[in-house]
């Protein structure tokens, strides 16, 4: 009679033990069709980390992992960029409707995930006076001579100490005026870099570039000035991405 509970306990331990053996397939490893993946981290790792870096930082393309980016980004615009890509730049089309691999649902998950922040989001109090991350339509394209002069001025104030007086490279930043670079980058990407910065590579954002934070106008001006160095108007990236 006494053995019964013991026996029961043994069977229980054995059964539970078997269930936690390392050979037991982990449902997490279960194969998922690529179109069924709904985990933001996994989607980001498979489709975006190649260019934007493992955690959104330290990659060759735009820094999406900065908490500042998460705080300032407009999720609708982010979703549009992921879906449609940026023509003339290496940012590819991801929507299935455009020949990409991601479903509508996955595009939403990515946009929401980036807005929530790959590394958290900056608190609102530190964003006071931040220039809008997305340029308004019509702001650029036909920059006036006056704007270019203001842009050159802003460049000298905020950027020259690192990127050199001429913009062709300096003490702690490379050339910004290489035709091939400007030819493959959109004004929006330049704008994002100026506002968010690349802290991962030692470039401050709009708040830290100079002695005082840059104004929204200065950001637009400096981007227009950089853009004016494109080798030809036909450069793929010169007229795109901003609606």
């Amino acid at each position: 009679m006494k053995e019964k509970p013991l026996l029961l306990a043994f069977v229980l331990v054995a059964a539970l033990g078997c269930d936690s053996l390392p050979g037991r397939p982990d449902p997490a490893d279960r194969y998922q069709r690529p179109s069924e993946v709904e985990d933001f981290a996994l989607l980001y790792a498979t489709h975006c980390s190649g260019c934007h870096g493992a955690d959104g930082r330290n990659g060759p393309a735009t820094n999406l992992g900065d908490p500042l980016y998460a705080a300032l980004a407009d999720p609708v615009e982010v979703r549009r960029v992921i879906a449609e890509g940026v023509a003339g730049t290496p940012m590819p089309v991801f929507a299935q409707t455009g020949g990409g691999t991601l479903t509508e649902k996955q595009l939403n998950i990515l946009a929401e995930g980036l807005k929530a922040g790959l590394n958290g989001s900056e608190s609102a109090s530190r964003l006071r006076g931040a220039p809008p991350l997305t340029a308004k339509a019509g702001v650029r394209g036909q920059a006036s001579t006056a704007q270019l002069a203001r842009g050159e001025q802003a460049y000298a104030t905020y950027c020259a100490r690192c990127h050199g007086a001429e913009g062709t490279g300096g003490a702690s930043g490379g050339s910004l005026l290489e035709p091939a670079f400007l030819g493959l980058v959109s004004d929006q990407a330049l704008r994002t870099t100026v506002i968010v910065g690349r802290e991962d590579l030692g470039m401050p954002g709009w708040q830290g570039a100079g002695e005082r934070p840059m104004t929204a106008a200065e950001v637009s001006d400096v981007v227009a000035w950089l853009g004016s160095h494109r080798s030809s108007a036909g450069d793929a990236a010169s007229g795109v991405s901003i609606k």
Partner: peptide
């Protein structure tokens, strides 16, 4: 799209 350019190939390199 899924294998990052390692940070050491990104550090100390120019925008181009």
């Amino acid at each position: 799209s899924g294998v990052p350019v390692q940070p050491r190939f990104v550090e100390d390199r120019s925008p181009l």
